[in-house]
Design a protein around this nucleic acid. Sequence first.
DNA 1: AAAAAAC
Length: 497
Amino acid sequence: MSDSAATNTSTAQAAAPTFDQFGLSADILKAVRESGYTTPTPIQAQAIPVVLAGRDVMGAAQTGTGKTASFSLPIIQRLLPNANTSASPARHPVRALMLTPTRELADQVAANVQTYSKHTPLRSTVVFGGVDMNPQSDALRRGVEILIATPGRLLDHVQQKTVNLGQVQMLVLDEADRMLDMGFLPDLQRILNLLPKERQTLLFSATFSPEIKKLAATYLRNPQTIEVARSNSTNANVRQIVYEVHESDKSGAVAQIIRERELKQVIVFCNSKIGASRLARVLEKDGIVATAIHGDRSQSERMQALDAFKRGEIEALVATDVAARGLDIAELPAVINFDLPFNAEDYVHRIGRTGRAGASGDALSLCSANERKQLADIEKLIKRPLDVEPLEVTTRARRDGSSGSAPRRDERFGRPERGEHRHASRDESGSRRRTTGTHDRPRGRQQPVDEFFLKPYEPSPSAMKRQEETVEPERKSAPKQPLAALLGGLGMPRKSS
DNA sequence: AAAAAAC
């Protein structure tokens, strides 16, 4: 908010905004207060008045910026005047629909909505796949004003006629870019066609890619664009370090990092489901309480894992990118990237799980020889070079049992002449921060030098140049479906699946 | 390349 609405606050803080300035109902404000929030985040300060005014919104903001509240609070407010206390389901049609790409995210948004609306007569529920439909159907039949859903299961309910979307006045597309990436466009089109044309649509996306713009152009009406600085990538609260390790040293490296940094809780991201399961097992064997969360585990296992982690019963949550976006875990001190993500965008989301709400956090990434491309992509996206350090893994024996002596750092990383200036931490003279693997212990299990480590990384000058050119990261991975074709055919008869 | 999501 740019205006100075708070004129008579006794507190002398000049422009400290409060939630009171939005004209939200006392019941909502009470819930907000009980949640412990006092000051709106930037996205909230910008979005709440716009949503209250009934305008469509094109929002660029990530979770962790208070995005959920930025649309939930004004939506609840707008539903309130017609809130019905009647017990009749017919009096509680779905009037607000919120779609998210993953089940966990849907669950989390629903929990937020539930919290913010608990002092109002409004009802809400959540539907997503992987769990029994019947309880969801029951809840829908009892009637809800606010429905949070993943697209597939929602359509399932539509087909079963357990829900009618004909009275939806407000629609939220959360993590819209992710939904497109995941091939949800046909489902989204199907859902959008069921909604009244006369409605308010809020689209939130990490990026405004051409696909997202096309989607917005098709389904939003004169949207107000709201952009909040990408908080996490440049978040000073998050210390980002990349460790160069041999691929086969990675499991040991994770265990070592957890031990040496005495991490109470950490999410470890892997690129594959198998890799996540495997790592969880290795860590368990190493005496670290760990569990895996990914799409091949049952929904109950996923929820159990997440709950146990939130309760602090698990030290290491080993996850695929199912957990990269949106999940809000309080006071997570660190995130480890076992693999660097193929999609640089996902790096930002992953490390966004730590250093939230003003707390500090560490983003520690393992980088092996064949991941330099990913590293370069990430640096390009976040527009700055990452601090790269060697990591000597001492905790686990190498499989080949070789006993060659460890190469000196010079040998391993090449002479710092050609383009090595970017890695201050590699400077021998510098007082490199003491990190894992540097304690004086006999070691001699380093693998022969990798080509990766011999060749200094070339900091692509274009990487730093292009930052001025566009805010938008280049999307590398094309969706499985011919998105352009689908988008080109918006409104056209779609293929059935 | 891999991941996610309806049955």
